[in-house]
């Protein structure tokens, strides 16, 4: 690795180290916000790993997340706790692999519709098996603390950033960028486009399932309507796009302001939350068409121009 690489990795490590100190602030409120930020940072970043370069919009996050919560819900009494996120990751990746093989040869709107239906499909399968067995919700009663959940999410975030950074510098990342620019050209250049897309989709699906597995003890009670809530898929897409998917850190700069915005809306407009949210979306799309990444890069470019003028 070159010197700038070490600087990037070192800088990221310092930032993660600082973020890991949050539970010591003693404020349950900010820790709660920290968990929300960490959760959406992982989900949005892993989503953008796949959807950023390929431009395939996946609405399957809720499906993978729900599968993960069910892995913890079903397994936490029988298996050691640390194995659950890993099993969830494998389960999510396998599901993503199956879905990917079936659908990633499709393009555009077909893929979007299928991923949207996936969460509902898995949810109906679970409901059906509950109806057969008479078993209702699952109770995940553990002594896991909020700080423990936060650190797990933070660790997962670090892993996702590292993976994303490595993928971007690998042949796979290069192949995906070409696919995103022009899939026909990519195929003609000898790239196995289906394989590349499925692999990345598996990473994204596995990570979302791990997030679900980690968060299950926080919700305590797991039932299909809560675990597979479709709103989650949309929130992830909106946050990632608000940040910008062209950079690895793009979704993160969308997630942080968005979480504070949601919090401000929820606490100040308890009776018009949805309305205020809609207005906020309109304003954001109108003022920041390229997301926060665009804003930051414009500012950088202006600074460079100013320096040049001097």
């Amino acid at each position: 690795m070159t010197l700038p690489d070490w600087k990037t990795v070192g800088g990221a490590a310092v930032l993660f180290g600082l973020a890991a100190l949050l539970p010591y602030s003693g404020s349950g409120y900010y820790l709660g916000l920290g968990i929300t930020i960490a959760m959406f940072a992982v989900l949005a970043t892993s989503w953008a790993l796949f959807s950023g370069p390929t431009h395939y919009i996946s609405l399957a996050t809720a499906a993978f997340f729900g599968v993960g919560t069910y892995v913890t819900g079903l397994g936490f009494e029988a298996l050691p706790y640390w194995t659950l996120p890993l099993i969830a990751g494998v389960a999510g990746a396998v599901l993503a692999g199956l879905v990917g093989l079936a659908t990633l040869r499709l393009s555009g709107v077909y893929f979007v519709i299928f991923t949207l239906g996936l969460a509902e499909l898995v949810r109906q399968i679970i409901t059906w098996s509950q109806n057969r067995s008479g078993q209702k919700g699952l109770y995940v009663l553990t002594d896991m603390t909020e700080a423990g959940i936060y650190w797990q999410l933070l660790g997962l975030a670090a892993a996702v950033f590292l993976a994303g950074w490595l993928i971007a510098r690998s042949r796979l990342g290069f192949a995906l960028r070409i696919i995103g620019d022009d899939e026909t050209v990519a195929a003609h250049s000898g790239i196995n486009t289906a394989l590349a897309k499925v692999l990345l989709f598996m990473v994204s699906g596995g990570v979302a399932a791990m997030v679900g597995a980690i968060l299950a003890p926080r919700f305590v009670y797991i039932e299909p309507s809560l675990a597979f809530a479709p709103i989650l898929s949309f929130q992830v897409v909106i946050m990632a796009l608000l940040g910008g998917t062209g950079r690895l850190w793009g979704p993160l700069v969308g997630v942080i302001p968005f979480t504070f915005l949601l919090e401000a809306i929820a606490s100040n407009f308890p009776n018009q939350t949805t309305l205020a949210l809609g207005v906020a979306f309109l304003v954001i799309v109108y003022l920041l068409p390229r997301g926060f990444v665009g804003l930051i890069e414009d500012a950088k470019a202006r600074m460079r121009r100013t320096e040049g003028a001097l």
């Binding site: 404020s27 349950g28 409120y29 709660g32 916000l33 929300t36 926080r218 919700f219 009670y221 809560l226 809530a229 709103i231 919090e263 929820a266 606490s267 308890p270 009776n271 939350t273 949805t274």
Partner: peptide, 22 residues
């Protein structure tokens, strides 16, 4: 002091935390 949790357990948790601490 009223908050809407949007039928979302994550929001319920956040709102209760906000009520307790803020």
């Amino acid at each position: 002091i009223e908050y809407d949790d949007q039928t979302n357990p994550g929001e319920t948790i956040k709102a209760v935390q906000r009520l307790a601490t803020q």
